[in-house]
Design a protein around this nucleic acid. Structure first.
Lengths: 187, 187
DNA sequence: AGGCTCATGTAAACGGTTACATGATTAC
DNA sequence: GTAATCATGTAACCGTTTACATGAGCCT
């Protein structure tokens, strides 16, 4: 599991409340790491029980109280240990490829519809991320260490979408004649 | 959920036992869709309860009996319905990127170690898949519909590793000077 | 003698998603 | 008035992983 580690890394930056972390995971990091607020609150309780984080309640008059968590030395040790360990490649569960395995048994036009839809989605996402990159990291030769990590995260998403789009093109290219033959056979 | 659908697609081809499916998911499809035998047996029971698949026990003298499952018309309908629906992009949980977000707070050399290890792994996988592609699909202009689906699955894995490797190179390029500065500051 | 393949399962624990719950403030 | 923001939580369910279990036959 690594949601707990993602939280610890976020707390390296500064102490934060569950609500802040949830927003962070929704916006910045959310493209590569999604987590709901329920999950984050739960994880924070577990981390506090292990003494990896420390909770401090901040009373607020006009809005609900905050519980701000900060990293303890013990949590920092655990984080260092995790950092040193090798990571496993993420296991992808790509429905599209499962569908492609039906090719030859189920009509190709359905597959083309699916591809077009995902292609559209990927184009939108790509444009959004590229806009962020161009705004915040226009010059990659002048990045602070902190910016470098964030830039590479973004870049991972961008290159991922780009390769998906070129794969889509190949898929469409190969499936289109099959769909055409099927349509001709039906008529 | 789509493990059930992955099973239904596999049964389109021919009736199969849980053991066969587990092997299939371990070897062929396993690169993009991993599932343990426990999961598959469980899922088959659920599919049978819904009458999406039909079980037939095949008595064997020298080895354990087999339970071979085949797709029912009802299962085929469910599959067609799923096929027509749009797919959601897979949510990636990439530990490496979480680690990169620590850049600026935790030493870069640990990140470089992690990158090198994943790079090595990706190279090995890539070589394996390329070997399969070159053996079974040397000429992409002469593919049957069935082969096309399988080829595109493979190709997705291959392009995915390729883009990961080029991303790794950029990451190493940007992090190396940071690690060097850190080492110099320490000495 | 030790380990692999064939073949099926149970059970516990963990992780993630979805739904439900509360309640004040602020913006349109 | 309606919706969004701030802020925290509980509960049920589903999917996945890991561990445990059995037992015959085959290969080295």
């Amino acid at each position: 599991m690594a949601l707990s580690h993602a939280i610890l890394v976020s707390l390296l930056d500064r102490p934060q409340a569950g609500y802040d972390l949830a927003k962070l995971f929704d916006k910045t990091v959310g493209q590569f790491w999604r987590a709901s607020h329920q999950q984050i609150y739960g994880e924070l309780h577990k981390l506090a029980a292990k003494n990896f984080v420390e909770a401090e309640t901040i009373e607020q008059s006009d809005r609900p109280n905050k519980i701000v968590y900060s990293l303890t030395p013990l949590g920092r040790d655990a984080l260092d240990e995790w950092m040193a360990q090798p990571t496993a490649p993420p296991s992808i569960k790509e429905d599209l490829i499962v569908k492609l395995f039906s090719s030859g048994k189920i009509g190709a036009s359905v597959l083309l519809d699916n591809l077009a839809q995902r292609q559209q989605l990927a184009r939108t996402r790509l444009a959004e991320w590229e806009a962020v990159r161009d705004e915040f990291y226009p010059d990659t030769t002048k990045l602070t260490p902190r910016q470098t990590g964030r830039y590479l995260g973004l870049q991972s998403g961008i290159t991922s979408e780009l390769r998906f789009l070129s794969w889509c093109e190949e898929a469409i290219l190969l499936l289109t004649p099959i769909a055409e033959k099927e349509a001709a056979a039906k008529a």
